[in-house]
Design a binder for these strands. Structure first.
Lengths: 178, 178
DNA sequence: TGATATATAGACCAATCGGTCTTTAAATAG
DNA sequence: CTATTTAAAGACCGATTGGTCTATATATCA
């Protein structure tokens, strides 16, 4: 997964994968089929990890606003320094392969839906707790938030400075939370 | 430019460029040097067009809120249907090459700075006109807006539906404008 | 120990990559 | 018209691509 993450699909060559998996060419093909299948597995794992993390951060039993803060703090972290420069496998894959690879399309699409649903859930709970700013509607705010964090990952590729990311995230949340 | 835009750098092969430029192999190399130089020229043109468009949309003499609306409307447009599926050369390049190509790094970085400066300018003028919501600070709001629109381009790759984009953009602006 | 299954290393494949160069045709100048 | 420049077509180059296959070494088991 790490190799695809760092380099992208096209830029990852077989030798890179062999070095990363410590497998021989034959064993790799026996275990995973071809490069494309292996990439799909890596993508699936990346998605599963991201969603699992969200399930913890945005847990129902938790204070929803705290959950959202933790969720955004995670993005700040992943956007800082070396982490930021590494980027996001999902965003990179979306830009590189979406619209040209049906398998990828399905995964990216459903990931964004799943992510949006989780954020919308947290926002709904925040609203019920009276913690949302006036006029904020959970479902559209969730879409906004998803766009915002994915955009963070894009600009974080070139300017991964933690302090600015954190301030931006705080200012963002201030617009939706009270 | 169009070829790199549609396929990305690595996925664009020489034959694609020959077809697109209607040039022979020799002429292309005589005119542009190598693939990398040609790509840089395409990227520069893309950036110049984007900034020129912003200069019109966010013109000083215009009502700043109208300008911001027009600016965001442009993103809605570029994110809908086939346009959306084509994606954004800048975002794709940032994810594919940033951190591995110094020439690209410089261009992407300065583009985001230029874009943010223009948005911040419009927001400042809006603030002076009393059109900003309470507690909105132009410079941090500009960073938020840049992240938001770039994130739009990412999720727009898989779900480029105009109505939702428009509603999301409207709801977003509602948080900052009055 | 000897027989068998497993996985390694790496030769090998056709196709394609970015890039160069030669040959030929077309346009221009006199 | 001929002479000269310009550009197109495409052969060609070594390197690399994703993928297959064989020979060898290493376990495993009786």
């Amino acid at each position: 997964m790490g190799v695809f993450w760092s380099r992208g699909y096209h830029a990852t060559a077989l030798p890179d994968l062999l070095r990363a998996t410590k497998l021989s060419r034959g064993s790799l093909y026996a275990a995973f089929g071809d490069k494309h299948s292996l990439f799909l597995r890596a993508l699936d794992r990346y998605i599963a990890i991201a969603l699992a993390r969200m399930d913890i951060e945005l847990d129902h039993r938790r204070e929803p606003v705290d959950g959202l803060r933790a969720y955004l703090a995670g993005y700040v972290d992943r956007n800082s320094g070396a982490n930021g420069r590494r980027g996001c496998l999902l965003v990179a894959t979306a830009m590189e392969l979406a619209g040209r690879d049906a398998d990828v399309d399905r995964r990216i699409g459903s990931f964004f839906r799943d992510m949006e649903a989780r954020v919308a859930g947290a926002l709904s709970r925040a609203k019920a707790a009276g913690r949302l700013a006036d006029g904020v509607e959970p479902s559209s705010a969730a879409r906004i938030l998803v766009c915002f964090v994915e955009g963070l990952r894009v600009v974080g590729k070139t300017a991964p400075t933690r302090i600015i990311s954190q301030a931006t995230v705080d200012a963002f949340l201030d617009r939706f939370i009270r």
